[in-house]
């Protein structure tokens, strides 16, 4: 059946309207971005800024050494992300389990979350990085890599635990009741029913914390790990140019993009499956 005259007229109008809207968006984007570019490049200090921050040859020279230093950042955040997730889930579960036997551990979990969320990450890094080896205790790690891993895991584990706890508490009580009514134990209900739903629900804020964590691996330069930022600093100090910082920044940006796309993909996939779209 062919659409009615009225419907055809509506479609023509909608097409025309979206064309006009597209044109307005394009023109205003060009105007605003172009205007900004003009203001920046016409500023009196631009030639010097251009030379020190955005020099193509400096960037090319700095690229290989910063790239190989960034491998350390990647190793760091991959290890830390896994550990943070484990710590976060354990602490979150300890805080929601209604067992009175766990009271002392619960208290510990609360103190942990409060202390490490409240302390600046840089401070945690310095305390763990310099404080733990100074204890000279048997068995404490002395490798800077693992000290760095411990520091950031402690700090981010506290954030992630709170996010996951919020996710667990947001699951409808009937889901708990349904699981228990099937004769599943508390642990089985948590593991198979509540936690999978909770993690999915909090995936976006979780990703946010992970992006933040990836950037904060740069803080580990303060305890002597030569990662991308530190490497950029070295080159910058040597030649008195700032372009290496911009190169390092681009690496950090590039590293967060796959994570964002992965989360988008997972979210869309579970939406599609569960809603049958």
């Amino acid at each position: 059946m062919s659409p009615s005259e009225r419907q055809l007229e509506r479609q023509r109008f909608r097409r025309r309207r979206s064309l006009i809207r597209g044109a307005v968006a394009a023109v205003s984007t060009v105007l605003i971005l172009g205007g900004l570019a003009v203001i920046v490049t016409q500023s009196p200090g631009w030639p010097r800024v251009h030379r020190t921050f955005f020099d193509w040859n400096d960037a090319k020279d700095a690229f290989p050494s910063i790239a190989s230093a960034f491998v350390l950042n990647i190793r760091l955040f991959l290890v830390i992300e896994v550990l943070v997730l484990i710590v976060g889930i354990i602490v979150a579960i300890v805080r929601v389990v209604p067992s009175p036997a766990l009271a002392p551990i619960k208290l510990l979990a609360i103190v942990y979350a409060d202390v490490f969320r409240g302390t600046p990450t840089l401070l945690v890094v310095l305390l763990v990085g310099f404080g733990v080896p100074a204890l000279e205790l048997q068995g404490t790690p002395t490798s800077l890599f693992w000290l760095g891993v411990i520091a950031l895991t402690l700090s981010y584990g506290a954030y992630v635990a709170e996010v996951i706890r919020a996710g667990i508490l947001s699951i409808h009580p009937t889901q708990w009741a349904s699981g228990r009514a099937l004769g599943l134990t508390y642990g089985q209900t948590m593991r198979h029913i509540v936690l999978p739903q909770a993690i999915r629900r909090v995936a976006p804020p979780l990703l946010n914390d992970f992006v933040s964590l990836q950037k904060d691996t740069a803080l580990l330069s303060t305890i002597g790990l030569v990662e991308a930022l530190r490497q950029a600093q070295v080159i910058s100090g040597h030649y008195f140019i700032f372009t290496p910082y911009v190169v390092a920044a681009l690496f950090f940006i590039a590293a967060t993009i796959p994570l964002a796309r992965l989360t988008d993909f997972l979210t869309v996939r579970s939406l599609r499956r569960e809603n049958g779209i």
Binding site: T174, A177, S178, R180, A181, G183, L184, I193
Partner: peptide, 20 residues
């Protein structure tokens, strides 16, 4: 308790199924 619940089934008004 879990053993008892295995022999006493219950269905609620809503939110029974596990959406994931």
């Amino acid at each position: 308790v879990d053993k008892v619940r295995r022999s006493v089934g219950i269905v609620f008004q809503a939110y029974n199924l596990f959406p994931h």
